[in-house]
């Protein structure tokens, strides 16, 4: 079984570093992390290999520091990785990203399954997986939370509004993994040793983690980055006050404070249980 998993490095929003006072993100200063949704995709890929054998290749597109998450993936047991890094990819929207990832997948060869996270925490679109499936001309299973392989068919349970659905379809396919799927297990000792070895041994590293650019994968630069993106972020606006002025209750003894709140009919009496 040839399994690909697509993972992205995102700014860590929990850490306050790199968040400007106006609310925008300074990506150079922000702490970086593996997109939390992609942890479920990694687990799904490793699960597929545990059950059906084969290899797992992690693929990421991003600036050079994104190699950190590829090490992380290897520590979790991924066999090899590809990092697509090229300045011409800057300002890619989802269409351009999906195109570049499509070229990377094509470069990496034939596959049975491509796993994606449901969405990223920075782009937050959940579009890249299905757009990649469209480029690859294969079926997709989105919001997948459980699956098995049965005679070169995948049988999967996907989340839908207020319930779930079981579908089956032949391979190859693109699967986006819901965050109700099994959590990523701990890093393995073997994986951790492998990372240490790769950090020491440069030749081995460039064999296991291939870093490629647009020319290597045969991508058309016009379809990448700013040029290849049909959308732009035209403006960001800070969100102001909507309800107008907030009436504040503070600085009084507790009982009196709550008295004031109730006296002001902040809580409509008809809502309270009789």
């Amino acid at each position: 079984m040839k399994i690909f998993v697509l993972i992205k490095q995102v700014p860590d929003q929990g850490a306050k570093a790199g968040i400007n006072p106006d609310g925008t993100i300074d990506r150079a200063k922000a702490k970086r992390m593996l997109n939390p949704f992609d942890r479920y995709a990694l687990e799904a890929a490793l699960h597929a290999r545990r059950l059906y054998g084969g290899t797992v290749t992690a693929i990421s597109m991003g600036p050079p520091p994104a190699i950190e998450i590829l090490y992380e993936a290897i520590a979790h047991g991924v066999d090899q990785a590809i990092l697509l890094s090229d300045r011409r990819l800057a300002a890619s929207d989802t269409l351009a990203t999906a195109y570049a990832l499509y070229c990377t997948v094509r470069y990496a060869g034939a596959f049975d399954l491509v796993f994606c996270g449901l969405q990223t925490t920075d782009g937050d679109t959940a579009q890249v997986g299905p757009q990649l499936a469209e480029r690859l001309q294969v079926p997709q299973i989105t919001y997948c939370e459980k699956f098995e392989i049965d005679h070169s068919e995948i049988v999967a349970r996907r989340v839908i509004e207020g319930g779930s659905q079981t579908v089956r379809c032949p391979l190859p396919a693109v699967v986006t993994v819901a965050n109700s799927a099994p959590r990523l297990a701990y890093k393995t000792l073997r994986g951790a040793r492998r990372v240490q070895q790769l950090q020491r041994d440069e030749a081995e590293r460039s064999r296991v983690i291939r870093t490629v650019n647009l020319d290597d994968i045969g991508a058309d630069p016009v379809r990448c980055g700013l040029k290849g993106s049909p959308t732009i972020v035209a403006a960001t606006e800070k969100v102001g006050e909507i309800g107008g002025n907030c009436t504040l209750y503070q600085g009084k003894p507790l009982q009196q404070l709550v008295d004031d709140v109730l006296a002001a009919q902040v809580i409509a009496p008809e809502l309270v249980k009789r």
Binding site: D22, I25, P230, V233, T236
Partner: peptide, 12 residues
């Protein structure tokens, strides 16, 4: 948008 209190206007 990703920032804490921003909205993004996206056009194509």
């Amino acid at each position: 948008s990703f920032g804490e209190s921003l909205k993004a206007r996206i056009l194509g």
